Amino acid sequence: MIRYFNRRTKNYNIEKVAGDAYLKWIYSSPLGMKFLEIIVKKKIFSKLYGLFCSTKYSKRKIRSFIDDFNIDMSECAIDYNDFNCFNDFFSRSLKKNARPINMNKKILISPVDGRLTAYEHINLNKIVQIKGFTYSLCDLINNNKTPVKFNNGTCLIFRLCPTDYHRFHFIDWGKCESYKKIKGDYYSVNPISLENISNVFCKNKREWSIFHSNNFGDVIYVEIGATCVGSIIQTYCPKKDISKGAEKGYFKFGGSTVILFFEKNKITVDKDIIEQTKKGYETRVLMGEKIGIQYEN
């Protein structure tokens, strides 16, 4: 059972997990773990399922997925009947007013819909994956030089589950460098997986780039694929002027993760998010909503 904090109601909600019984078997049983290592984590498994989700035959899954997970289609830019396949539905765009963006230059917004955990004053060699497991930023981005100035900074981890809006956006005005791809496996990023597999983020397929934010300093963006994520699609133009809230890219089918790294003394994360992280809970956030402010002495 996965509980997360709902900022609006101040209550804890239980997350309805797609393939819950399957995930528990795969990541919690000896036979399931063998199946995971031999087949599930492999690129071919996710690629084949991703290809199926791009065919017209996958369209029949859309209506039942909407009903099972109570997805609000009034936010969607087009009617569900107009999608050609499940991947089109999964990477759907929303209406312009569906995600209001706080345009105050001192306000830090969420780049995605998802469940957020936040860590301040991070040790670059011991970043928290989940209680008991840590990883290194150098290993995460496969780069030994870039991370130094992010020591003692802030790390924000956004977990997107399959029911979420799966496009990711920029948190500020600025310019973004070209992205770099890192090949890897396709483990789930669900908490069930994070509690049983060490260094998941450093093992999975991922892409990263440096965003030169006008108001929050340099920010490392890391997009991480997971089981059944066919692709990470970047849609932005590198080294061009970017507006706050502009789309950076999107994921095809599957749960996914976006991680942001900030330099020291650049942002102050909202207290409720920090408090819930310390208690061991993720906080549900929507793209464009306030999650912090510009750091002030």
Rank of each mutant, 00 (worst) to 15 (best):
1 M>T: 11
1 M>F: 10
2 I>P: 02
8 R>T: 01
12 Y>R: 02
14 I>N: 10
18 A>E: 15
21 A>G: 10
24 K>N: 02
25 W>E: 11
32 G>R: 15
32 G>F: 14
34 K>T: 07
34 K>G: 15
35 F>L: 14
43 K>C: 00
43 K>R: 15
46 S>I: 04
46 S>F: 01
49 Y>H: 02
52 F>H: 00
53 C>W: 01
54 S>R: 13
58 S>K: 07
60 R>I: 14
67 D>M: 11
72 D>P: 09
73 M>D: 11
76 C>S: 12
78 I>L: 04
83 F>L: 09
83 F>G: 09
97 N>P: 03
100 P>D: 15
105 K>N: 14
105 K>I: 10
109 I>E: 13
114 G>A: 01
115 R>T: 00
116 L>G: 06
119 Y>L: 06
121 H>Q: 12
125 N>D: 13
125 N>S: 09
130 I>D: 02
131 K>C: 04
136 S>H: 06
136 S>V: 02
139 D>S: 13
150 F>M: 14
151 N>Q: 10
153 G>M: 08
155 C>M: 13
157 I>F: 14
160 L>Q: 01
169 H>L: 03
181 K>I: 15
196 N>Y: 02
197 I>A: 04
200 V>P: 00
206 R>I: 08
207 E>W: 03
209 S>T: 14
213 S>N: 07
217 G>F: 15
218 D>C: 12
219 V>K: 12
220 I>M: 11
220 I>T: 12
222 V>N: 14
227 T>L: 04
228 C>N: 15
230 G>M: 07
233 I>E: 02
241 D>S: 07
242 I>M: 14
250 Y>T: 01
250 Y>R: 15
250 Y>D: 01
251 F>M: 05
253 F>C: 00
253 F>W: 09
253 F>T: 06
253 F>Y: 13
257 T>V: 03
258 V>H: 03
259 I>D: 05
261 F>T: 12
263 E>Q: 11
264 K>V: 03
264 K>C: 01
264 K>P: 05
264 K>A: 04
264 K>S: 09
269 V>S: 07
270 D>G: 11
273 I>V: 12
282 E>S: 15
286 L>V: 07
287 M>L: 04
287 M>H: 02
290 K>F: 05
291 I>M: 01
297 N>S: 09
